[in-house]
Amino acid sequence: MAKRYAEIGKDCVACGSCIRVCPVHAVTVWRGVTAVVDKVRCVGCGKCAAECPAGAITLQNREELA
């Protein structure tokens, strides 16, 4: 499993930019409110974080999950 995963912050505007760039389809928009990441599927590549216009995505270390 990848060392990092993407986490969505409160600034998410649910524009869906992250969905377009995710290579493993780990991101979806939940009910038009916010994006959510499938942490198991996420490979932590950071493409979504670079794409997010609101800067709402950060990469977290897996160790911090516990």
């Binding site: 649910a14 524009c15 009910r31 038009g32 216009p53």
Partner: peptide
Amino acid sequence: FQPRAWCVFCPMGTMTQLICRVRARKQ
């Protein structure tokens, strides 16, 4: 700023997100 910076404060995006928030208020 970012290519899709407009999406951050787009009135239609804000309005639709607000509608979706109201619809998903229980969840």
